[in-house]
Amino acid sequence: MTRPWLTAALSAALAIALWQALVTLTGMPRFILPGPGLVAKTLWTSRALIAEHAVITMIEVLVGLALGAILGGMTAIGLAASPMARSLIRPMMVFSQAIPVFALAPVLTLWLGYGLWSKVAMALLIIYFPVTSAFFDALMRTPKGWLDLARVMGASPRRIMWHIRVPAGLPGFASGLRLAAVYAPIGAIIGEWVGASKGLGYLMLLANGRAKIDLMFAALIVLAIFTLILHAAVDRACRKWLD
């Protein structure tokens, strides 16, 4: 496709048409399934309210993403550098993935409170593993020829890590970050559902409880668009600096 934005716009138009068709054909009441027109109208009339909550969610996501990238990156390097760390920490990491993040959300709220940090922790928790895992795998796949060359040149393991393995593994780190850009908002929203007084997740829950399904959809669309933009931005940054 020569014009990706054109096909994206067509795809969005098709989705909206299907949505409208579903509303028209089933005749569902607006408090069960509002049509795209009503949601667009609510999006406009409640823009101040939605924006206020959206800013909170965005901050949670961005802080979570930044911390997850830093912690995940450092963990991956630590694991790749030390066989001892691998044998001790990797089983723990895999085990931690067997625990549903949802189940941890109430505890995190208990420990970190209703504010920003329990949501940041949730976002971080959900992206930590994919970031670490993608970067670690890439660090362990450094072409053997490069490592041999570096050894013959008299490089220490530490310098091999910084000058060969890390730069060679950055594309793997980038693919972890691309996943993280999509997962981080999910984490923040889960955190907001469990206990919050601000944020898009809180707004959705509130709107749902008051049968303002149009407002819930409007908040959902804003969240989806934010996630798409975040993913595109991370993808661009990765292409520029990491790939």
Binding site: G145, D148, L149, V152, I164, P167, A168
Partner: peptide, 15 residues
């Protein structure tokens, strides 16, 4: 410390 190696693959770092 007295050896250099050159392989079939050029082993140039792409970055």
């Amino acid at each position: 410390g007295r050896i250099a190696l050159m392989a079939q693959s050029d082993l140039l770092m792409p970055w």
